[in-house]
């Protein structure tokens, strides 16, 4: 038996598939996204929690807000700094972050995240 040709062909196919990320990106990394803050968000300086927390935990917080507002009817959230906010995606979050395309979508698209917020909520018209 001499299957060397077939084995080497198999090896080449394997490494072609294995190196998919290398040849798919043509060796150039797309620049990381920079979410843009709207004027109102800039003026507010801080979100309901600090930036680092919001960056990694916002989805978890939104999930909590959804549960407390929709299931328990509690519409008040007190942040770590003691300020109280209305628990509402449309009225609180989107009030400042009214620019979905420049804010939400940039990172979500980059990290391939498809949040299902917009299955129920409508998002405001883009304004800066």
């Amino acid at each position: 038996m001499n299957d060397k040709g077939m084995i080497i062909a198999g090896l080449i196919i394997f490494f072609t598939i294995f190196t998919f990320p290398i040849w798919y990106n043509h060796g150039a990394a797309a620049p990381p996204p920079e979410p843009e803050l709207s004027q109102k968000a800039k003026a507010a300086k801080t979100c309901v929690e600090d930036t680092a927390y919001m960056r990694t935990e916002h989805m978890h917080l939104l999930n909590q807000w959804r549960n407390t507002a929709v299931r328990d009817g509690l519409r008040e959230y007190t942040g770590k700094d003691g300020k109280t906010y209305e628990v509402s995606l449309s009225n609180t979050c989107l009030d400042c972050h009214s620019n979905k395309e420049q804010f939400c979508d940039r990172c979500h698209n980059y990290a391939s995240v498809t949040p299902y917020c917009w299955d129920c909520h409508t998002y405001p018209k883009e304004k800066m």
């Binding site: 290398i22 990106n25 060796g27 150039a28 990394a29 990172c107 980059y110 995240v113």
Partner: peptide
């Protein structure tokens, strides 16, 4: 314990494109 996914992708994209960030 959440991690910053966007920063991780910056690193991994650098690895995949041989421009390690």
């Amino acid at each position: 314990t959440k991690v910053d996914v966007v920063k991780i992708k910056e690193l991994t994209m650098g690895l995949a494109t041989f421009h390690p960030a």
